[in-house]
Computed example of a mutant assay.
Amino acid sequence: MEQDSHHHQRWEGKVSARVRNVTKAQAWPLVKDFFNIHKFFPTLATCYGLHGSNGDPGCIRYCAGFSIPSNGPESVSWSKERLIAVDDVDFWLKYEIVESNIGFNSYESTMKVLSDNDDESNGCMLEWSFVVDPVEGLELEELVSKYRVAVQVMGQKFEEEIQSLEKKHIWTS
Rank of each mutant, 00 (worst) to 15 (best):
W28R: 04
W28S: 01
L30C: 03
L30Y: 01
K32Q: 01
K32G: 00
F35D: 13
K39T: 10
T46E: 15
C47F: 07
G49I: 14
H51I: 12
S53V: 15
N54R: 06
N54V: 09
G55W: 04
G58A: 11
I60E: 04
R61N: 01
Y62K: 10
Y62W: 07
A64W: 04
G65C: 11
F66Y: 14
F66K: 09
F66E: 12
S67E: 10
S67I: 07
P69K: 12
P69V: 06
S70Y: 09
G72F: 07
S75N: 00
E81L: 02
R82H: 00
V86Q: 07
D87Q: 01
V89I: 15
V89Q: 15
D90R: 15
D90C: 14
Y95D: 13
V98E: 15
V98T: 14
E99D: 09
N101H: 06
E108S: 15
E108R: 13
E108I: 14
S109G: 04
T110E: 14
M111G: 06
K112L: 03
K112M: 05
V113T: 05
L114F: 01
L114V: 04
N117V: 07
D119V: 10
S121Q: 11
N122L: 13
M125S: 05
M125R: 10
L126C: 01
E127V: 08
S129W: 00
F130H: 02
F130Y: 13
V132P: 02
P134S: 06
P134C: 05
V135C: 05
E139N: 07
L140V: 12
E141H: 01
L143F: 11
L143R: 07
S145R: 09
S145L: 07
Y147S: 09
Y147W: 14
R148N: 06
R148P: 01
V149T: 10
V149M: 08
A150V: 05
V151G: 03
V151N: 04
V151R: 00
M154A: 07
M154R: 05
Q156P: 08
K157E: 15
F158G: 11
F158T: 11
